[in-house]
């Protein structure tokens, strides 16, 4: 087989594989961030195919299209992240299933299957330190504002 045809064939195969893997991720994952990462993988697959076709036709049109894809991906990331942040503020979770009430009227509600407990990871015990210094002064309100401190 001619090496240029072989190159085109191989690149189209890899592009198809990347597109398929991204499609699976977009359909099956539930975290919104991971869904958008999967969409970017699909765009990568298409970019590879376009660049290979551009070389095969000895034309810069393929590379121009890939540049347009990069611009569209940047737009998509900006709008998608704004949307994800907004949805997260409304629900407090990145889970796309938190929005299942947007389904059609004749569909049953989504029920999450009960998850088995994750096996607890072994933690290294903290070293015991001798008591030293004085306890810092705290204010009552500060604990309300900073619950994790």
């Amino acid at each position: 087989m001619h090496p240029e045809i072989a190159l085109l064939n191989d690149f189209l195969l890899v592009g198809a594989l990347l597109f398929g893997v991204g499609l699976i991720g977009f359909v099956s994952r539930r975290n919104m961030i991971v869904m958008f990462l999967s969409a970017e993988i699909m765009l990568q697959g298409v970019s590879l195919s376009l660049a290979a076709w551009g070389r095969f036709h000895n034309d810069f049109g393929g590379q121009t299209l890939v540049l347009l894809i990069i611009a569209v991906a940047a737009c998509e990331a900006a709008v998608a992240l704004a949307l994800v942040l907004t949805l997260f503020h409304r629900r407090g979770s990145l889970d796309i299933a938190a929005w299942h009430f947007l389904r059609e009227a004749n569909q049953p509600p989504f029920r999450d299957a009960p998850l088995p407990e994750e096996p607890a990871q072994r933690r290294e015990p903290w070293p015991r330190l001798p008591t030293a210094g004085v306890r810092p002064e705290t204010f009552g309100e500060e604990n309300d504002y900073r619950p994790r401190v």
Binding site: F19, L23, V27, S93, L94, D95, A113
Partner: peptide, 28 residues
Amino acid sequence: ASCDRMSWEAGISAAAGIAMVGVLSVAI
């Protein structure tokens, strides 16, 4: 999070995506 430990219909989506890859590669 707990939603990262579950996926929607993992079997069906894997079968559909991989079938598309197979059709594409045979066509190529």
